[in-house]
Amino acid sequence: MIDLKHVSKTYGKKDSEFSALNDLSFSIPDNKTVAIVGKSGSGKSTLLHLLGGLDRPTEGQIVVNDLNLTKLTHKEMDKYRSNQLGFVFQSFFVEANLSCYENVALPLEISKVASRKRKEIIEEALEKVDLADKLKSKARTLSGGQKQRLAIARALVNKPKVILTDEPTGNLDSVTGDKVIELLFSIYREQKSTLVIVTHDMDIAKKCDIRIYIRDGEIERIESIKDKDKDK
């Protein structure tokens, strides 16, 4: 459950204040796919960063899975991110000179998973994104789509309750992009998590249960699709 109440985000100081998000309130039940849609500069990434605890709202409250993010300390926020979230970004942020294995190991190291338990978990995650044969390959030798799949493996390895993705297909061609989206959806179904996708691609947005349209930092409208409609 993700719950926002009167959330605003303002950048800058008094004279040059800029309101990136203005009085957002909505709530997302568990196990849904959510698209955040809007023009460039509308505030999509800002909203995602607030949900991901990378930034704090200037006003309002955000509650994710009973955690009131606005009240968490720095340390608790780190824990929230490493235990509950998976991030996938437009530019993949994989460590080029490390192996796929090492890349996927990072979240496990951060959340202090004992090293002897890691191997199995990592292999399973790479299996899911179809990179099992690239275990020892350096990330720099991968194609764009493979890099993004590696990033997805890294995001899912901790079995997060919420996966936050910001334009995951932005750097990929449409065929590869479709495959990546397909992969994200299959993982969402398997792990029973909440999947949030920031996108301006309406084809992707249409696949989601909930679509939040943002314009100039405000919610334009929210579309929710009944389960049976989605199946058509």
Binding site: L54, D78, R81, I110
Partner: peptide, 8 residues
């Protein structure tokens, strides 16, 4: 990225 993943 490391910070986003929750590294302190």
């Amino acid at each position: 990225l490391m910070k986003a993943l929750g590294m302190s």
